[in-house]
Design a protein around this nucleic acid. Structure first.
Length: 406
DNA sequence: TCTGGGGTCCTAGGACCC
DNA sequence: TCTGGGGTCCTAGGACCC
């Protein structure tokens, strides 16, 4: 059994770097890409900003306190998605085995194509050169024999570097590190491990699996394997990708709201966004979930399955309203969201009822117009007064399909 | 002038059926 | 006049990721 060779490409401060590239006056400055709304967080700070301790996820005032000269830029989603597609084109020159992990992260399995281009390090160097020359952006590349370790290595290579981790080095490198250095182990798991007296990956690796099982159940095996640097998960290409399992939208409101009429208006807007995406993917949803976050940040969800799947805006909206009616609201709302699940292929419309047919034709017409003339050209009358905040892309965006975790 | 938004996967209790 | 057991679906919540 021969080892695989996996590359993990991670763009350096992706959104911020794109902005700096396109606006030279921002070069070498502390900048951060942020969302459009009033209550937003930093999505991507530049390395100049990070030098001040500024991090992704901070609020604007928090970052400003650390770095008074920081410049905020509202995200330009289309630019980042277009750039992502350009990167993918470059990567295809080296292998067809590409997994798009997020808008700025990619796994490449170069096991079978490597001999055409030299060593793994040669390929990493060439990829970095091509991205630099073609797109004026830098990235970091991790090289190892599985995805877990390739991703771990790219982090060590940051920024603008290459890092390789060989099998014989793994335990020496991992053992002293805190568990959350690996992708898949977060703060909660780290804390639970601490309570067990496990502070690093070496201790985790040597821990009895039966002990881990008591705290982590089915996930114990995986934790144990991760500490050993074992990960058999294959690089899965777009073709192998499964369809999305959920599609949803949520929005933190610029100001907390209490009035039912206002809540309803937002629900209609959200239903419209969600259903347009369902229809664009030719999917219908069998379940609707309403998410509510109160002023004090307590968050809860309530969902309802439907008798038949739909992607009609009014239908989804009606279900959301029905769910809302079952909730006795206790505080002003900070966030409201609609999610859909139990997604099935829409299939060819089977019009049992005249009303269903009318709804289908109307939705199709609206989608077509919006497709040709811009996103919100035609909308519901009650939404027209809405000052629709610019859609902010999330870093989890992917050009196709969804992300998979173990 | 605190704390985004898009997802996946897992758990756990209860309903319901055979 | 005493309480099975397995499977599946539904719902709510939480960990984790970028």
């Amino acid at each position: 059994m021969v080892d695989r060779t996996i590359l993990h490409i991670d763009m350096d401060a992706f959104f911020a770097s794109v902005e700096q590239r396109d606006r030279p006056e921002l070069l070498n400055r502390a900048v951060a890409v942020v969302g459009a709304g009033r209550r937003t967080v930093l999505v991507s700070p530049s390395y100049e900003a990070r030098a001040f301790g500024v991090k992704t996820g901070m609020t604007k005032p928090q970052a400003r306190a650390l770095c008074p000269e920081i410049i905020y830029i509202t995200a330009h989603a289309e630019k980042y998605t277009a750039t992502c597609s350009e990167i993918i084109k470059i990567l295809y020159d080296f292998t067809p085995d590409i997994e798009v992990f997020s808008i700025d992260e990619f796994f490449l399995d170069i096991t079978t194509t490597m001999h055409l281009f030299g060593s793994a390090r040669d390929i990493a160097t060439n990829i970095r050169k091509k991205i630099k020359q073609g797109l004026s952006l830098t990235c970091s590349v991790g090289i190892s024999y599985n995805k877990l370790l390739a991703k771990f290595s790219s982090k060590r290579a940051k920024p603008d570097g290459i890092s390789m981790l060989k099998r014989e080095e793994v335990s020496a490198v991992l053992d002293e590190l805190e568990p959350d250095q690996l992708c898949g182990i977060g703060q909660k798991t780290k804390q639970t491990l601490r309570e067990m007296g496990i502070y690093n990956l070496g201790q985790l690796r040597n821990c009895k699996i039966s002990l881990l099982r008591k705290k982590f159940g089915i996930n114990a095996t995986n934790l144990h394997l991760m500490a050993k640097g074992i990960d058999e998960d294959p690089v899965s290409t777009a073709e192998e990708e499964e369809d999305a399992k959920t599609i949803g939208h949520s929005m933190t409101l610029d100001h907390d709201i209490t009035q039912v009429s206002e809540i309803q208006k937002h629900l209609l807007l959200l239903s419209d966004k969600v259903c347009r995406r369902l229809r664009a993917s030719q999917l219908s949803a069998g379940c609707v979930k309403l998410t509510i976050r109160y002023r004090d940040f307590t968050t809860f969800t309530k969902q309802k399955s439907m008798l038949s799947a739909t992607n009609d805006t009014k239908q989804i909206y009606k279900v959301a309203i029905a769910i809302l009616k079952t909730i006795r609201l206790k505080q002003p709302l900070r966030l409201i969201g609609i999610g859909t699940s139990k997604l099935t292929a829409q299939g060819s419309p089977n019009f049992l009822f005249e009303e269903t047919e009318r709804a289908y034709r109307l939705n199709k017409l609206l989608d077509d117009v919006n497709e040709r003339f811009g996103d919100e050209t035609v909308s519901f009358a009650s939404l027209l007064t809405e000052d629709n905040p610019e859609t902010v892309i999330s870093p989890a965006w992917r050009p196709y399909g969804t992300r998979r975790y173990k």
